[in-house]
């Protein structure tokens, strides 16, 4: 099990991801530079958070057209696991590998706080066995998930909403939805279920010293998703 962590100019959660994967998750992981065109030898892809290309034009827009992304697209089309966190989620949406887009938070503020997540998709390999609420941090200015009405209906009807923001009791409420995302959506999967994108940072909830180990529930799925 070897995970490719894609590095773009401006990625800044790449080291956290490497630490969490090699440490508590216990899999191999290596950096792959954005100019590379091969994912040979890798079993999964992790697109980390950060501010790739300084968020120029739109968050993730330029990174989504970087050389490595054609290969990530091919990799995803083979049904192999790809996860994008925060800016990585934005990159996967911009690349067309996930539906929707992420806009400026409803209330303008850059949000850096813990949130509660409920894993809702019983269909997605990433979340089907997760029945506990997860405490995971967010850190974003542009995390408001939006899509058109048809896409939203498709996500709901086909069980493609991986995670929703909820309150402590597991209910979707306006207060539990920090950024104004449609239908409290924090993460989605593609039709096939192998590509996951989410705004919260599981790699930052991977050690008791960080306040939560709930992120490991998501990251450990990498191991069995690819098996």
């Amino acid at each position: 099990m070897n995970v490719a962590i894609i590095r773009f100019p401006g990625s800044n959660c790449d080291q956290d991801a490497l630490w969490a994967l090699r440490g508590p998750v216990g899999v191999e992981a290596e950096y792959v530079w954005y100019e590379s065109t091969s994912l040979q030898g890798f079993d999964a892809v992790f697109v980390p958070g950060g501010f790739s290309y300084g968020d120029y034009l739109r968050c993730g827009a330029v990174a989504a057209r970087a050389p490595i992304m054609a290969e990530v697209g091919r990799f995803a089309a083979e049904g192999r696991p790809v996860i994008g966190v925060c800016n990585g989620f934005q990159v996967l949406c911009e690349a067309g590998l996930l539906p929707g887009a992420l806009l400026l938070n409803e209330k303008q503020k850059f949000l850096c706080q813990d949130v509660w997540l409920r894993a809702d998709s019983r269909r997605s390999v990433w979340t089907k066995d997760v029945d506990q609420l997860l405490r995971v941090p967010i850190a974003h200015g542009e995390g408001r998930f939006v899509c058109d009405a048809d896409t939203l209906a498709r996500l709901q009807d086909h069980d493609l909403v991986a995670f929703r923001y909820v309150d402590q009791e597991g209910r979707t409420t306006p207060e539990g939805n920090p950024n104004g995302s449609m239908d409290s959506i924090a993460g989605v999967v593609n039709d096939r279920g192998n590509v996951l994108g989410l705004m919260p940072h599981p790699e930052r909830a991977s050690n008791p010293l960080l306040g939560s180990v709930d992120g490991l529930v998501i990251l450990r799925a990498l191991a069995y998703v690819s098996a």
Binding site: L57, A61, E94, P99, L103, V146
Partner: peptide, 9 residues
């Protein structure tokens, strides 16, 4: 279509 605008939004 390819870069400057995102048709989703």
């Amino acid at each position: 279509d390819k870069l400057l605008a995102n048709p989703v939004i």
